[in-house]
């Protein structure tokens, strides 16, 4: 991995984390808020594949965990999983991994990834006895977070794709 490519990841993840906590979660929206970090991880996975998605997801999640009040590693696990699965979709030839890709694909992947992330996070909470996890809270987050993440997609996925192409693809991808 080149230094420039590494810096790109670090800069975008930090910027996303700050914008997330100071702007997006404070928007007076009903039923939750968009999760910029999740969309960012999906964007990297779609641009570079499962390896990049998994690593970015884990690191971004760990950083988010460190600034939160829940147990360390919960978001890291969720986002690593999200990055891996989204990366598999990107690599799959039947979804246009090598050739043309449907413009709707990123929206679908982000929506499903958000729904999956909310659910995995809720299951973690149930295992840990987190009082915040209730059926109604899960349903609200499932609908709200997924919908808002999909709305964020056109502003994040193309930008990350362009940035990655500019800086040079992650050599890790080709091992």
């Amino acid at each position: 991995m080149t230094v420039r490519r590494a810096l790109l990841s670090v800069a975008t993840v930090l910027a996303a984390l700050l914008v997330q906590s100071t702007v997006l979660t404070r928007l007076p929206l009903p039923g939750g808020a968009p999760d910029l970090l999740l969309v960012l991880v999906v964007a990297y996975a779609l641009a570079e594949g499962p390896l990049s998605g998994t690593v970015t997801g884990f690191c971004a999640g760990l950083l988010a965990d460190l600034t939160s009040d829940h147990e360390l590693g919960r978001t890291a696990l969720v986002l690593a999983l999200v990055g891996y699965v989204a990366g598999l979709v990107a690599d799959d030839p039947s979804y246009g991994g090598s050739g043309e890709r449907s413009t709707l694909l990123p929206f679908a992947v982000v929506g499903l990834a958000a729904a999956g992330a909310v659910t995995v996070y809720a299951v973690e909470g149930l295992l840990l006895g987190d009082p915040r996890i209730t059926a109604s809270a899960w349903l609200t987050a499932l609908l709200g977070t997924s919908a808002y993440c999909v709305l964020l997609t056109p502003f994040v996925v193309p930008v990350v794709g362009a940035l990655v192409r500019r800086v040079g693809r992650d050599p890790l991808r080709h091992r």
Binding site: T25, R26, D35, S68, T75, V78, I133, A141, G144
Partner: peptide, 14 residues
């Protein structure tokens, strides 16, 4: 002043 709100996929209240 409140500068940020906690976020964990829509579950946090901090």
């Amino acid at each position: 002043r409140v500068t940020a709100r906690g976020s964990a996929f829509g579950f946090a209240s901090t």
